Amino acid sequence: MARRTVFAASDDKTRAAMQCVNLIFSEDGLKAVSSDGSRIMSAKGETKGGGAVSMMIPARSLALLAGMCAEEDVFSVGTTGKSIVYMKESFLFSARMIDGVYINTDALFSACQPLFTVLTDGEELYRALDSVTALGDGGSTVELHFEPGAIELSCSSDTGTARGRLEVIPLTGTPGGTYYYTAHKLKECLRAMGGTMRLNVAQNGVLLLGTEQVSCLNVAKRAPSSVRTEHAVSSGKSKPRAA
């Protein structure tokens, strides 16, 4: 769960809550949630529930714990004052809990009503995205153009433009439209998910990715200035000239 969420936490030191992973214990089991303001990662854990507890743990602490254990390790979890303690045989790890209220990510997911949904393979989508962004830098923008049965990906940089195409299976609605996302953030989400996933596009290009265990929300970016300028010219729009 930590590996699927810690990377999406904010690094903004003025927003302590957003630097955390929100651990939610409920009757449905354990869930971990993180967000940096432009994306949300939500991962399911142990399905045995009990009680209703929500706590915020610094993402750096969980990343450290994840680096010291294997995916299959099972811990007993408890709290001592303002700390959460992970325990197993011959191992104990403690992390401080942060006071505050985390954003209601369930409400944000529920508010996004898909315009259309397609079925795709997360690993294939990641490889296609990794290929077209190879020439870009850390802040590159990737363009996703949806068609019935396919996604066309492209990414431009000073050295050129790379394009790719991935076939998908339409499920609901009519796939269509062009949307833009921060390439490295979307790649991190896909790398953490993998497997067969439902890809939904909601109003304003909000991208929703979901598998049985992990859900992801990515906010779309504005089109690059070069694309907006090209669209304005093709539409016959231009700035008025000074007298």
Rank of each mutant, 00 (worst) to 15 (best):
M1H: 08
A2Q: 09
R3G: 15
T5C: 08
F7C: 04
S10H: 07
S10V: 04
R15A: 04
R15L: 07
M18N: 04
M18Y: 05
Q19R: 08
V21D: 05
I24P: 00
I24S: 14
E27V: 06
D28T: 12
G29C: 07
A32S: 11
S34Y: 00
D36P: 09
G37R: 06
M41S: 14
S42P: 05
A43L: 03
K44D: 15
G50L: 04
M55I: 08
I57R: 00
P58N: 08
L62H: 03
L62K: 03
L64H: 12
L65Y: 05
L65H: 11
C69W: 00
E72L: 02
E72M: 03
D73K: 03
S76N: 11
V77L: 04
G78Q: 06
G78C: 02
T80S: 12
T80N: 12
G81N: 12
K82Q: 15
I84A: 06
M87Q: 11
A95W: 00
A95P: 09
R96P: 06
R96T: 13
R96S: 13
M97S: 03
I98S: 02
I98E: 12
G100P: 12
I103W: 01
N104I: 06
T105S: 13
A107P: 10
A107I: 06
L108A: 07
F109S: 09
S110K: 13
S110P: 02
C112E: 15
C112H: 10
V118A: 03
E123A: 09
E124N: 14
R127D: 15
L129Y: 00
V132P: 00
T141A: 05
V142I: 08
H145W: 00
P148G: 09
A150M: 05
E152V: 01
L153W: 01
L153N: 02
S154H: 02
S157T: 07
D158L: 04
D158Q: 12
T159V: 05
R163S: 14
E167A: 05
V168L: 02
P170T: 10
L171E: 15
L171Q: 15
L171D: 13
L171C: 08
T172I: 03
G176Y: 01
G176R: 11
T178H: 01
Y179L: 14
Y180R: 05
Y180Q: 11
T182E: 15
K185H: 13
L190A: 05
L190M: 08
A192W: 01
M193S: 07
G194P: 04
T196R: 12
M197C: 14
R198C: 09
L199C: 12
Q203W: 00
L208M: 13
L209S: 02
L209C: 15
L209R: 01
Q213M: 11
Q213C: 13
Q213Y: 06
S215P: 02
S215T: 12
C216Q: 09
C216V: 10
A220Q: 09
K221H: 11
R222L: 09
R222T: 13
R222S: 15
A223L: 06
S225V: 04
S226H: 12
V227I: 08
V227F: 01
V227G: 06
R228D: 14
T229H: 11
E230G: 07
V233H: 07
S234E: 14
K237W: 11
K237M: 13
K237H: 13
P240S: 07
R241E: 15
R241K: 14
